[in-house]
Simulated scan of single mutants.
Amino acid sequence: MSRICRLRVTFNQLRSFHCVSVRLSTFVSPTTPYSDKYYKPIITEGAAGFDKLVIPKDFRADNQSLTTESQEKLAEIVGTFDAEISAVVGYGSGILPQNGYDKPDKEKQLDFIFLVEDTGKFHKENCKQNPSHYSTGSQTLINWWQGSGIYFNPYVLIKDKLTKYGVTSRRSAFMDLSEWSSLYFAGRLQKPVNYIKEDNMLRFLNQYNLKNAMTIAIFLMQANQFSERQLYEQITSISYLGDFRMYVGGENPNKVKNIVSKQFQYFKKLYDPILQYFIRRNYLVITDNDETNRTFKTNLTTTARINLISSLPLKFRTQLYSKYPESSVKEIARDEKLPENIRGLITSTIIYSSLIQGLKGLFTAGLLKSLKYSIAKRRKSS
């Protein structure tokens, strides 16, 4: 998988690097140890630091290689598209197992997100090949609804499989991973996903995203001692804070536990290098080394909390600091209301992006498809 030597990248110069995924056998895998030093340019400058970002020689992120038995079939579905696609992420209950979602395979919707270089070019070519996937043939409307977010085409049949695919630019996806600008794409990748078509930059940025997700989860934990399962449940819950579907019955209220329960071994593999980083830095201490479900306690000194806060995504960090206009980072780190402020900031970020996506879906999917999708979601939540 390691085809990358040292190289400099910009949003407009990133190229695809395709790797052969391996099946999940154990959560321990060859992975480049996590270090903030790799991400200094984006930690200090955000998106403006991409020109200085360097992928380490022989970088590997095998912890993110989470494939399924239907890998070839998923690749075949993606392969039906003529328009160029840089990377594809498969997610949701149709791709990876979740408790409470035991429909026959033929009834499961397969969820994908396509990362493309130019969304306008993709839609223009895709409309010619798959006009029935769209609610309108107007390129002006499609491009307007696309914006900087994700454009979804749900409930389309591809190779006799019910499919939903979202389209986003690599620039927007990478921006969210590195700055948490919306936490819509980044939130999905904080949970196990299946890379149907991948590139190393996506994996590289997601290691930073995973580390930040664990940072937030530890800050939000109400107890200073917790199990590994509880940690992954806290991480999973991050992307649902502020998701309006959780408040209107559009999502299963037990969704977080359902995901972690069925995908626990995937989480263990995905977060193993990040956990090792926290343990090496003495931020977490193992109190019970049970190989099935370890127990940890936090060891967050003021210096440790400053280090963790100071390496959070720039946009998110700036918004957090704005809640403390006259305070130093040390004072912020010691504030008893820090978890509350972090939770509020995440909630406000996600509620905005989830509402925008929800409204956008009414137009991009069409009224009938939107109603069908909403009814299906409500049935799942019951």
Rank of each mutant, 00 (worst) to 15 (best):
T364A: 11
T140V: 10
R6K: 14
V88M: 01
E76F: 00
P325S: 06
M246W: 06
S239H: 11
G137R: 14
L231S: 06
V89R: 00
G100K: 10
K211E: 04
I259K: 12
S138R: 09
R170F: 10
Y155I: 14
G120A: 12
L270A: 01
G361C: 07
G137L: 15
K255L: 06
I150C: 09
S178F: 00
N212G: 05
S172W: 03
R378L: 04
A47Y: 05
N209H: 04
P131R: 11
L177K: 00
A376Q: 15
R229W: 04
P154T: 13
Q129N: 03
N194W: 05
I259L: 14
L74F: 13
F226A: 05
G166V: 02
I77F: 02
A304V: 00
K57D: 11
V193L: 03
A333Y: 01
G100C: 10
R379M: 08
Q230E: 15
R15D: 02
E233P: 08
K380L: 05
R6E: 10
R305Q: 01
K73I: 03
N299L: 01
N206D: 12
K57P: 04
F267C: 02
V9G: 04
K257T: 14
G46P: 10
L367Y: 10
N99A: 13
F27G: 06
L96M: 10
R6Q: 10
Q276P: 02
R378A: 14
S370Q: 11
G187E: 04
K323I: 13
R6S: 13
